[in-house]
Nucleic acid binder design. Structure first.
Length: 465
RNA sequence: GGUCCUAUCGUCUAGCGGCCCAGGACGCUGCCCUCUCACGGCAGAAACGGGGGUUCGAGUCCCCCUAGGAUCACCA
């Protein structure tokens, strides 16, 4: 049975890179009929916060990445790490080290200055005495000869010389385990079969394999996925814009669009660009994950978002866009009117924020008139075309869109002007601008009464010069 | 600096020795559609980092160079 995991440290929100790692783990588990486990790596007491834990959970939930087990917390598993550290100690595979952080730091810097490798010199390895007043750390006795080989599902076979790897600390002086140790114990306890994570961990992998070996644990399969880079090809960070998953929700992105964007960043399935969650699960595989880093491209994400806005079921679109409309307007019309509003706006909105922002024309009757537009389409402030149309509407009403169109065309012909001119004059009267949704959409949604009022208000405005 | 990873249009990518004078997508440009803005449709510009091999044949395999990235903590 395949078991994968996502193991973030709660030192901030769920970011784009983490979300993609989580997604790949999720998809692989689902594709294989396995389990997806969530684990919080909070052994760094200084930097871990409860808010971050919540932020990560929120992000996962919004993206729809549901986990089967957990969340497990490393901070609640201290006895497990202690147990195995002691076992290594007993078997002579680990030892106490009394070197203090300051002196280690100093030695590292000196080595670096002399152009040497800044590795730990193993000086406490054979130490027998117990210095008073010093709390020790526990170090892993790493093999000094031979090689450690990582068989990576994405990168292939990667060979590390053991003399490159030093005796890493597995238990800190405060009793907390370090990452490379805790991660091994956890993955074994949770029976993880496939470790899919960012390739910034590739260099850690041989150390972890050595610990698996020392403890006689079976080594899981590794798949190191390439990083996500910013537009300047450096690691994606705040400098490149929003990196928090929830910030994208704030900006009006749809979870499905973000997921869809993320899955295609580093993974492909022929020429297919659009994937539903079910399709992703069905088609996802590790073989088609690329080997090189990918640059995050906000334009493509925006395109996907607008695609989902355009093609999404209207009821669903209404549901998810409601909160954005509520942010913008005190009261909202009833459901079916909202649907018509959204339908008229969705073709020209790339985000849900844009969708809500562009809805003003349906909500307010007391808008300002854009001076440039008025100047352009009413150079002598003549409202005769509008008053003719108003007259016709009052007399005959408007049956449907066809009716409206023939009225506009008929009017254009009658006054000897282009259809565009008539349309734009109406548009300005109805919206104050030269850009708006389709005229008949506006008229039919706000109703004939408000349409007439807007006409009269504008003609009044014109006459006052 | 050591170690490790990577290298096809600006970007995401297809390509797993001949189907490639390299395909798709975003973006860009032009045209069409059109009551504006959009949507949509059509067309176009745009790439195998460089050098050596292997082979009848290389974007595809090997080596070197170059360029990016990652990592070298009592962070994860």
């Amino acid at each position: 049975m395949v078991r994968t995991r996502f193991a973030p440290s709660p030192t901030g929100y769920l970011h784009i890179g983490g979300a993609r790692t989580a997604l790949f783990n999720f998809l692989f588990a689902r594709n294989q009929g396995g389990k997806f486990i969530l684990r919080i790596e909070d052994t760094d007491v200084e930097r871990s916060t409860d808010e971050s834990v919540q932020a990560i959970l929120d992000g996962m939930n919004w993206l729809g990445l549901s986990w089967d087990e957990g969340p497990f917390f490393q901070s609640k598993r201290m006895d497990r790490y202690k147990l195995y550290a002691e076992r290594l100690l007993e078997e002579g595979k680990a030892y106490y080290c009394y070197c203090q952080p300051e002196e280690l730091q100093e030695r590292r810097e000196r080595a670096l200055k002399d152009g040497k490798k800044p590795t730990y010199d193993r000086r406490c390895r054979e130490r027998k005495d117990v210095p008073a007043g010093l709390t020790p750390v526990i170090r892993f006795k790493a093999p000094q000869e031979g090689q450690t080989i990582v068989e990576d599902l994405i990168k292939g076979t990667v060979v590390f010389n053991n003399n490159e790897l030093d005796d890493l600390i597995i238990i800190r002086s405060d009793g907390y385990p370090t990452y490379n140790f805790a991660v091994v114990i956890d993955d074994v306890d949770m029976a993880i079969t496939h470790i899919i994570r960012g390739d910034d961990h590739l260099n850690n992998t041989p150390r972890q394999i050595q610990i698996y070996n020392a403890l006689n644990f079976p080594v899981p399969k590794f798949a190191h996925v390439p990083m996500i880079l910013g537009s300047d090809k450096t690691r994606l960070s705040k400098r490149h814009g929003a990196t928090s998953v929830m910030a994208y929700k704030e900006m009006g992105y749809i979870n499905k669009a973000l997921i869809n964007y993320l899955v295609r960043l580093g993974w492909s399935c022929g020429d297919q660009e659009i994937f539903s969650m079910d399709e992703m699960i069905e088609k996802f595989n590790i073989e088609n994950i690329g080997k090189s880093a990918a640059v995050f491209n906000p334009e493509k994400l925006l395109w996907l978002n607008s695609h989902y806005i355009k093609t999404m079921d209207i009821d669903e679109l209404l549901e998810i866009s409601l909160e954005y409309f509520k942010r913008k307007h005190e009261i909202l019309p009833e459901r079916d009117v909202m649907k018509r509003i959204i339908n008229s706006l969705k073709e020209r909105s790339k985000t849900l924020v844009e969708l809500a922002d562009s809805s003003g024309v349906y909500f307010y009757d007391d808008f300002d008139y854009d001076t440039e537009s008025v100047k352009k389409f009413f150079p002598d402030r003549n409202s005769s075309i509008l008053s003719y149309i108003l007259e016709q509407v009052k007399k005959k009403g408007l049956a449907d869109e066809k009716d409206f169109e023939s009225l506009v065309r008929g009017t254009a012909e009658l006054f000897g002007v282009k259809v565009v001119v008539v349309a734009q004059q109406i548009r300005i009267a109805l919206s104050g601008k030269t850009v708006s949704p389709s005229l008949y959409d506006i008229i039919s949604i706000i109703g004939i009464e408000r349409t007439i009022r807007r006409f009269e208000r504008f003609m009044d405005f014109l006459s006052k010069g």
